[in-house]
Design a protein around this nucleic acid. Structure first.
Length: 400
DNA sequence: CAGCCGTGGCC
DNA sequence: TGGCCAAGGCT
């Protein structure tokens, strides 16, 4: 991780360095001046901690640096080593992950920690293939960890690298079909000397200069060789096949509250949407939801159909592949009502500590229940529990 | 291999 | 405001 050495003096007859070597050198020189300081990133000249690299890479999958930072701090505080993480309960991991999304990542994170301890003696393997074999680590992450933590001379390809390289070469081929060609282009770079720095330099370039919308080409170390900049349409790369949008699904959520403030919840199935996370009982979420019969699906608590009071307005939420609209019904229960099979009561002060996905935070807030940590409970919630974006629809009034 | 998986921020 | 996007992996 030394600063780039000045180019060796060459005799007049020496050939120019190959194009790839010049590209790599220009990028690394820029990185040495403009690298971002990030919690998981070692100072210049210091080897990064593989545990920190792995944890950050998993969190950063399809997730912004800004969103990740507080979660990374919370995890390294709660689990300073991979052994601590492996020894933790999955539920504790999910609670700490709540709000970050893509919850299969948290389950795989926990499984991966166990594998590292059980199969590798608590030490991360150093080869791409061995890393690739671990849960939650795919092609990109295996190459990224190998390069960043162990300086294996490989170039990981993520969304940033795709964008940077398709622009550099003005590659017209659409993604994802163009992936093999991108791999070939990435392999023309020269990671041999500083693989970790090169990988992070590509990502920093993509995140700060070669951005999706308004790339700052004037500041770019690759401005001169960039084919897309020369054409003047860098922001139109990469080319992508259009994806179809999901249809609106609707449903109803049921918030049952005891006199002491306890709320009825259940745990979602391990796999699939919001797997393993906490929710209030709901109907199925369908494109053909019938509001009239919604109350028929309320949990069996011995309350009259009419005692499920509809909270005006709706909760809206957009998942990756479909938008969701939930009606919210609230019922005030008598003390001592048993929770139906498969569900449980959660004390008012413990709601914030549950593994609540944001859509459920919205539902509870819509029903007037505080999901923020710190209320009348001794129990600690995730220290970084983000608020649900309070974009709950106002009650709809029919125009007159 | 294309569909499934969250969430927050941006313009 | 809503459509798009972010350091992808799994099936």
């Amino acid at each position: 991780m030394t600063l780039a050495a000045p180019p060796p003096a060459r005799k007049p007859s020496s050939p120019e360095p190959p194009e790839a070597a010049r590209l790599t050198a220009a990028l690394l020189g820029w990185y040495d001046r403009h690298r971002r300081v990030l919690p998981w990133r070692a100072p210049t000249g210091v080897t990064a901690d593989p545990y920190a690299v792995w944890l950050s890479e998993i969190m950063l999958q399809q997730t912004t640096v800004k969103a990740v930072v507080p979660y990374f701090q919370a995890f390294t505080t709660a689990f300073p080593t991979v052994r601590d993480l492996a020894a933790a309960d999955l539920d504790a991991v999910l609670r700490l992950w709540a709000g970050l999304g893509y919850y299969a990542r948290a389950r795989n994170l926990h499984a991966c920690a166990k594998c590292v301890v059980d199969r590798h003696g608590g030490v991360f393997p150093t080869t791409v293939d061995a890393l690739r074999a671990l849960p939650g680590i795919g092609d990109y992450t295996a190459n990224a960890i190998a390069a960043i933590a162990f300086d294996v001379p490989v170039v990981p390809i993520d969304g940033n690298v795709e964008r940077v390289l398709t622009r550099l070469h003005a590659l017209e081929e659409e993604l994802p079909g163009a992936k093999p060609r991108l791999r070939a282009l990435a392999d023309t770079l020269e990671p041999a000397d500083r693989a970790g720095d090169l990988a992070q330099a590509l990502m920093d370039l993509g995140a700060t200069i070669c951005t999706p919308k308004s790339p700052a080409c004037v500041l770019c170390p690759w401005a001169e060789p960039c084919a897309a900049r020369r054409r003047g349409d860098a922001e139109t790369f990469p080319r992508k096949a259009s994806k179809k949008e999901g249809r609106l699904r609707r449903g109803a959520a049921f918030v049952a509250v005891r006199p002491d403030g306890a709320v009825l919840v259940r745990t979602r199935p391990e796999k699939g949407l919001l797997g393993g996370m906490t929710e209030v009982p709901t109907t199925e979420w369908t494109t053909t939801f019938a509001e009239r019969s919604a109350r028929d699906h309320a949990p069996a608590l011995g309350v009259a159909r009419k005692d499920w009071r509809r909270v005006p307005g709706v909760v809206t939420h957009v998942f990756t592949h479909f938008p969701l609209e939930l009606l919210v019904f609230v019922a005030q229960l008598a003390a001592g009502v048993d929770a139906p099979a498969g569900s449980r009561w959660v004390a008012r002060g413990d709601v914030a500590g549950e593994a609540l996905p944001n859509v459920m935070r919205k539902v509870l807030e819509h029903a007037g229940i505080d999901t923020k940590p710190g209320a009348p409970s001794m129990k600690r919630a995730a220290p970084n529990q983000p608020r649900p974006s309070s974009r709950i629809s106002k009650p709809k009034r029919s125009p007159r």
